[in-house]
C-alpha cells in the first residue's frame, strides 16, 4: 500500500506526471463545456425543453447524479488548477534572470496566456456558480414553473433574466473569449501531453482544437447575443 502511494506521489511530483493530470482533467472539462453548451442551447428549442433538461439533471439517479457530477467536476477543476499553478510557479523559477531581448518564434499568444485565461475562467466559474447555482444576490431560486404537472425550477426564465443584466452578459462574453483562447491551445495540447499525437495526426488535432474552441465560443455567446441583439425571450 505504502509502496503504491509512494509511486503515486512521485508520479504527481514529476513534471510529466503533473502535466498528464492536467491533460486528463482538461479532457474532462473540455467534454463538460461541450455538454453544458448543448444543454444551454436547448433554450432556443423553447422553455419546455430547457426546463425538462434542468429537471432531468436535478433528478437523475434519485438526485445523486448531479452531486456525482458536481464532485467529479470540482475534483477535476481543483486538480487542474492546483497542478497548473504549481507548474507555472516552477516555470517562473526555472528562469530567474529574464532575457534583455525577448523573442518568440512560434509560440501562439493563447499558449503564452494560458495561466491568465485560466485564472479569469476560475473567477468566472465562481461568479457563475454563485449566480446560477447558489442564487446569491438574486431570487432565481423562487422562479418555478409547471412541467407535465410537476413544479420545477424555471431555468428558461432564470437564463433570460440573468443575461438581461448587462454586466453579467459582458462578463460572460469575456469569459467565453478566454475559454476560446484556453481551448485553442489546450485541446490540441492535451493530445501532445497524453502522447497521442504523431506527425501525421498532429495537424488534425491542431485543427480540431481550434475548431472546437470556435464552436464553444459561438455556441455559448449565441445566447446573450440572441437576448441583447434580437430580444430573444423578451
Amino acid at each position: 500500500m505504502s509502496a503504491v502511494f509512494e509511486s503515486l506521489t512521485r508520479f504527481y511530483q514529476s513534471s510529466i506526471g503533473k502535466k498528464t493530470l492536467v491533460a486528463l482533467t482538461g479532457a474532462m472539462l473540455v467534454l463538460f463545456v461541450l455538454g453544458h453548451m448543448i444543454g444551454n442551447l436547448l433554450i432556443f428549442v423553447g422553455p419546455h425543453a430547457i426546463n425538462e433538461y434542468g429537471h432531468f439533471l436535478q433528478t437523475v439517479g434519485h438526485g445523486m447524479g448531479v452531486w456525482v457530477a458536481r464532485i467529479g467536476l470540482l475534483a477535476a477543476v481543483v486538480i487542474h488548477i492546483v497542478a497548473t499553478i504549481q507548474l507555472t510557479k516552477a516555470n517562473r523559477a526555472a528562469r530567474e534572470q529574464r532575457y534583455g531581448c525577448e523573442a518568440t518564434q512560434v509560440a501562439s499568444r493563447s499558449s503564452r496566456f494560458m495561466i491568465w485565461s485560466g485564472l479569469t475562467l476560475l473567477a468566472f466559474i465562481v461568479y457563475h456558480l454563485l449566480h446560477f447555482t447558489a442564487h446569491a444576490g438574486n431570487n432565481y431560486g423562487s422562479y418555478m414553473t409547471d412541467l407535465d404537472g410537476h413544479q420545477v425550477h424555471d431555468v428558461y426564465k432564470m437564463v433570460i433574466a440573468g443575461f438581461s443584466w448587462a454586466p453579467a452578459a459582458i462578463f460572460y462574453v469575456i469569459a467565453m473569449l478566454m475559454l476560446c483562447s484556453h481551448l485553442s491551445h489546450g485541446v490540441s495540447s492535451l493530445f501532445q501531453t497524453l502522447g497521442l499525437a504523431t506527425n501525421k495526426t498532429w495537424p488534425i488535432f491542431k485543427f480540431v482544437g481550434h475548431a472546437y474552441a470556435a464552436l464553444i465560443l459561438v455556441g455559448n455567446c449565441s445566447i446573450p447575443i440572441a437576448i441583447w441583439v434580437f430580444g430573444y425571450g423578451h
Binding site: Q13, K18, K19, L87, N91, R95, A107, S188
Partner: peptide, 16 residues
C-alpha cells in the same frame, strides 16, 4: 526524475 531534480521548467507545448 533527474531532469526534474535539476530544476528545469515544465513543457507547455509551445514548441519554441
Amino acid at each position: 526524475r533527474q531532469m526534474d531534480a535539476e530544476g528545469f521548467g515544465n513543457c507547455t507545448n509551445q514548441y519554441e
